[in-house]
Nucleic acid binder design. Structure first.
Lengths: 200, 200
DNA sequence: TACGATACGGACCCAGGGTCCGCTTTGCAA
DNA sequence: TTGCAAAGCGGACCCTGGGTCCGTATCGTA
């Protein structure tokens, strides 16, 4: 095992930083005015500590995101229907996208911070790739859907953090309405006839 | 008229900056390593000049983008079918999204720079709002499509610059294939039956 | 040609991410 | 218990890059 267990003060500080960052992102308007120094100060820790634990800003954001995501991920990988693996593809696609949307609604600032500030593209990240692959494999089990690869990307794009922020935040669309809109949209994509044979 | 005509050296410099920036964004791998100082140097101009002409980085990016967009915009607002206003809604939706995709393919780095680095959300920009409104109004003329507002956002999200960059750039999907994928996807959304009445 | 208005340019400023290194804490072992 | 590496700490420090300032040069009009 190449991993050695960290010293307990290190572990405690790591948690403190995570908690402080979480609180700050929830409190402040825009993620970009939460500075690394702020987080360090709020956690009662030096900047060095913070960078040693998470490498860089993107690393911290990612760690926070993954921590928040853990329960959802578990529900998807091993939970009961409609999110869990025992669900038929059609319903699971809807449930999955709804879960993603809800997650972003519940973690707006954080998701925003990660998708803008994260090192380069939000697409080159472990959890996006996993999610996209899962969605893709489910789409490909639905008869009549030709290109699961692209469709998975496109559907996920409809839940991008900044779009959610625009609709839920700036335009004040209520949560349930947004969920209904996404559900309708997903239904259109998933239940559509094969392209090349328009309904008309 | 509140606008006074600029001095001719100012106009010349403005063009030089635009050209230099354009070249730099096309040449360099990532937009974030094109610095303002680089642009100024490449244009043979001082930094002050550059900021006087465009206010800030976002302003320069926006000016460049709009300049590139001008012909497309014209084709949409006053050109012949299938992009122009005389086109029936169903075809025009496809044509519009294809045009957006092609534009982003032809201006990858620039679009990327604008969508990431632009002042805050890429959604709070004049041209996005115009585009989204137009798409929305066309979608609402298509029978059976309930929520044009959300669908317009969601469809445009499928052409986000970083997604295009991932697929066309990093994964090497050829241009025509990507266009076909998007066309299929759009067809699914637009030609789908009303939600609540699945095709099965 | 003279002179006000406009523009130039690069030295300068500053915030914020990331590093460094002398000091402290931890925890194993004698 | 105490000794002593190794691991961790923290905040002064560095550097990049966006944005500003102001003395100087240019424009264009009378």
């Amino acid at each position: 095992m190449p991993e050695r267990k960290p010293r307990k003060d290190a572990a405690r500080n790591r948690e403190a930083v995570l908690a402080a960052a979480d609180a700050l992102f929830a409190r402040r308007e825009s993620p970009e005015d939460v500075t690394m120094a702020d987080i360090a100060a709020a956690a009662g820790v030096g900047k060095g500590t913070l960078f040693r634990a998470f490498d860089d800003r993107a690393g911290l954001l990612l760690a926070l995101y993954q921590k928040r995501l853990e329960p959802v991920r578990y529900a998807v990988e091993a939970g009961p229907p409609p999110l869990g693996p025992a669900t038929p593809p059609r319903e699971r696609v809807s449930a999955l996208l709804d879960a993603v949307l809800c997650f972003k609604l519940d973690n707006r600032r954080l998701a925003l911070a990660l998708e803008e500030g994260g090192s380069g593209s939000p697409y080159r990240t472990e959890h996006y790739e996993r999610l996209q692959r899962l969605l893709r494999s489910m789409l490909e089990q639905i008869p009549g859907l030709t290109d699961g690869e692209f469709a998975a990307h496109a559907l996920l794009a409809a839940t991008r953090a900044d779009l959610v922020e625009l609709l839920a935040g700036h335009e004040g669309v209520p949560r349930e309405r947004l969920r209904a809109q996404l559900a309708d949209y997903v239904a259109r994509v998933v239940d559509a006839p094969a392209p090349g044979e328009p309904a008309a």
